[in-house]
Nucleic acid binder design. Structure first.
Lengths: 369, 369
DNA sequence: AGGTTATATTTCGATATCGAAATAACTGCA
DNA sequence: TGCAGTTATTTCGATATCGAAATATAACCT
């Protein structure tokens, strides 16, 4: 139990609480106020934390509010899939410094992608702030220790890549990896729709479909790091499609890729025709929404989450996608209202993954001994 | 942070580790060996812990092994459903002291059951050991704080019963409640098939079907305490029964109650004819096993647990039930071997619930300030 | 202005924890 | 028997934490 352990705990707690006082922190962490005073004074002196005065205050001595000191350093986050790559830098208080997005060449090889990742990290790096860490949101599967990318269907030779070692070697700062759906879930938890929610599931619908899972307030990875791989979840509902007798994988009905292929259009084309209420488009979207809704209802039976956050372009389609999805969940759980989760769509936009990846490195960051 | 907090943590750690040394404990809890020495000495002096010598030891000074002192007190556990009630008392080191089982009158009312619970507690109470706590394994649903039984289908007026208050009032010791499938899961975790397993699911197949869930090494309850209520999980598989087009609830295919009703027999009758390989019985059991198997495969996609433990009478039927169940899981997950969980049946017998309930109170027990 | 109430923070002696070195208890070997 | 090697535990001065009381800083009231 390093003496820095408690200091790191304090910094993390301050990040979660936004702005709080010595006494509040002492209570929350079960530490004597006098001790907390000593620790905080040291952190302020080191430039890690910053004091500020509250706007309004009622009775009693007003607290000196504590926040992370923006100038203490910067973190960089990178998010990508087969088509596009996003990077951001944020300061120590998680405010955006620079951002950059670029398309990847179609048929890009793993080696190309890794080079581009390093390029954009240099691109968004902010002069004059010490770089403290890098977070990477990785599509596909990772090994259990989150050091190596195992497999990603949409980049042909993406197999067993020791990404952590490569990027850490290039930039000489701690590098943290996580699956991109889990990064989205962390982003929702830290600054999105799942703040202060202990049990929630973030479902990302893009090329594939995956789930990021927070239970008992903690990210859940599964025993082999494969939790949330619901793309192959078998869906069968004769009411949706009379021809389907056997169940088929969720990803083949409801992923963005499957829908775009069926309709032979682009993401923008899809969103546009959905807005225009094109009936054939609406029908396909409704089938997809119902499939996702049934899976959510089954997940809710098992896990009774408080909230479900839907991510990806389809989540923006209120009428065409989210409504039928919610109705289907309600229909499936009609007998058991206690199990009905709140269902919301993400509000974080396309930089969510990159910001989440930056936040990942920021939350994992630790004061050195 | 009470000074007793660390002592309670030490006692819990010793229970998990069976027999261990001061140095080992210090390492595991991140505490200096010198401090651990002081703490342990005090706990031994208080009669909470006991020292013993290791059987064999290689190089170096042999450790003084530490275990819970049996004479420090006793705990009582009670487990019941609509038909039958089990109670046990265990000493401070979790060894069985007394046990008692009895049938409940059919059509028993809630008030009767509560009286019987108190009776069997008096019955198994061991003279001359201080009673330190009581654990109750409750069928049906509980409120989130685990103080009140909300509903249980098979006892007619079992609604909103403040069981914790009632039993605590009668015996003046801490009383802990938990859903009976979760208690089974805790029993597997502490002294069953799931020792040292961080992520596992215990599926109990009795009158109903429920799941007890351990993730990241902790019991998971869900945001309303309803996690694991998989009885109504929709199962549809046209290969099992051509007539079924719409999905039907898992409990209506695979619960003990459903199977006994279909075959019009008793539990003993079922087990007997399954041993004799009665083909109509085997067919029904295979349908049930496949249904449970499909649900397990879906759960595995989501949660990637390391192990599944099956509880209830059917778990004893190796050929007739467990084999087809495992095959179905394998078939459903064939593409993704990393997701395949180990599937085992419980070995704890009919006292599992009562022993688990006693262990619940024992693990929750704390040194007073 | 001066007192009262309420809340946050600091002060300071008592206690707990740490870390490194010393000691204890064993095996194996000469 | 004596000594080297190994691991567990204890010793002891330095440091950290605690807890209760004192102090600081505000609003509110008369």
């Amino acid at each position: 139990m390093n003496s820095r352990t408690i200091e790191n705990t304090i910094v993390r707690e301050i990040r979660l609480a936004n702005a709080t006082s010595r006494v509040q922190l002492a209570k929350q962490l079960g530490i004597a106020p006098s001790t907390m005073g000593i620790q905080i004074d040291r952190l302020v002196e080191q430039g890690i934390l910053k004091e500020s005065v509250p706007e309004e205050w009622g009775l009693g001595r007003p607290p000196k509010l504590l926040e992370p000191n923006p100038t203490a350093g910067q973190f960089i986050g990178v998010d990508f899939d087969a088509r596009r790559l996003h990077a951001v830098s944020v300061d120590f208080s998680q405010q955006l410094l620079k951002q950059h997005s670029r398309d990847l060449p179609s048929q890009a090889k793993a080696a190309d992608v890794i080079l581009q990742i390093q390029e954009v990290i240099r691109e968004v790096r902010f002069r004059g702030r010490k770089l403290l860490g890098i977070g990477l949101a990785i599509p596909g599967t990772l090994d259990e220790e989150a050091t190596t990318g195992l497999h990603y269907r949409f980049i042909s030779d993406w197999t067993n890549l020791p990404l952590k070692r490569i990027v850490q070697g290039a930039f000489r700062v701690p590098v943290y990896l996580e699956n991109n759906v889990r990064v989205m879930a962390m982003a929702e938890r830290w600054f999105g729709q799942a703040r202060n929610i202990q049990n929630f599931i973030c479902i990302g619908i893009r090329s594939g479909i995956g789930a990021g899972i927070f239970l008992n307030g903690e990210l859940y990875r599964g025993s082999g790091g494969l939790a949330g791989e619901i793309g192959t979840w078998p869906v069968c509902d004769s009411s949706l499609n009379k021809k389907i007798q056997e169940s088929i994988p969720l990803e083949d009905i409801a992923s963005l890729r499957a829908i775009l292929e069926t309709l032979n259009t682009s993401v923008d084309g899809l969103l546009e025709s959905a807005e225009k209420c094109d009936s054939s488009v609406l029908k396909i979207l409704k089938i997809a929404a119902c499939a996702v809704g049934r899976v959510i209802s089954q997940i809710s039976l098992m896990l009774n989450p408080q909230r479900i956050v839907i991510g990806g372009p389809l989540a923006e389609l209120e009428e065409a996608f989210m409504s039928p999805l919610c109705e289907e969940v309600q229909r499936c759980l009609n007998q058991q209202s206690g199990l009905l989760p709140e269902i919301v769509s993400t509000q974080l936009g396309e930089l969510a993954g990159a910001k989440g990846a930056a936040a990942l490195s920021l939350h994992r960051w630790e004061l050195k001994v």
